[in-house]
Design a protein around this nucleic acid. Sequence first.
DNA 1: CCATTGATTCAATGTTTGTTGAAGCGTAGA
DNA 2: TCTACGCTTCAACAAACATTGAATCAATGG
Lengths: 119, 119
Amino acid sequence: MDERQAVAAFAALGQENRFRVVRALVTAGPDGLAAGALATEVGVSATNLTFHLKELSHAGLIQSRREGKSIIYSAAYEGLSNLIAFLMRDCCQGRPEVCDPAVAALSACDCPTGDALHA
Amino acid sequence: MDERQAVAAFAALGQENRFRVVRALVTAGPDGLAAGALATEVGVSATNLTFHLKELSHAGLIQSRREGKSIIYSAAYEGLSNLIAFLMRDCCQGRPEVCDPAVAALSACDCPTGDALHA
DNA sequence: CCATTGATTCAATGTTTGTTGAAGCGTAGA
DNA sequence: TCTACGCTTCAACAAACATTGAATCAATGG
């Protein structure tokens, strides 16, 4: 991930409705959510949602697939992790002030990666 | 850090010139850089830089202090790490697809935190 | 084939954001 | 105190962004 992509991803996340979309999709897991369900959950019109979904897709943070009449959106985990990795690499630079708290947060997390850090 | 703050921080980083400012300040370390030096390094006018610095300061990503005629800006490490931590907590949710690569990036990093992970 | 449902495209609009140049404020040195 | 320097404030403007409603497209069921 280069600077241009990272900035685009940050810009995509720097909008309330888009951020909520990503959050909802990450929470939903790999199965994702249909556009209609997303619109309801986030509280925006279908038209407006489409606009934001395009933006997020272009930033590599989400992906979509058709399933019958619905279009299912899901989080692009790789894009998200690349963004975190880029942020850490960029901020780390020999300074634990930034990285340590991030790792601490990860350790407190309930996921397998967090568990591994406990060992 | 709540959602509102996180979105503001992402929006702040989602602009090329602002992103470069943060990068330059993180690289510069705790000593920071004078506004003039920053303007030169990022390649924007003094007026424009002030605009972006205000934006970043308001997002909690940088801080400033006066030193003689100059005003020295420096990275707010706490704000940055809070952002990373928030992103990881929000994205992790029991899924190693996101967290694992981030940790891998950290491990490859040359900083003390990365070194600790090697052990 | 027609009607219906789910989602996108299009055009229009109001709002926010980024950029610029001129003017102003604070600090330091002569 | 006068001048120079560094940075910020202000006002103005252009560009980008977010939102809306009407029209359109794709898939399904009767």
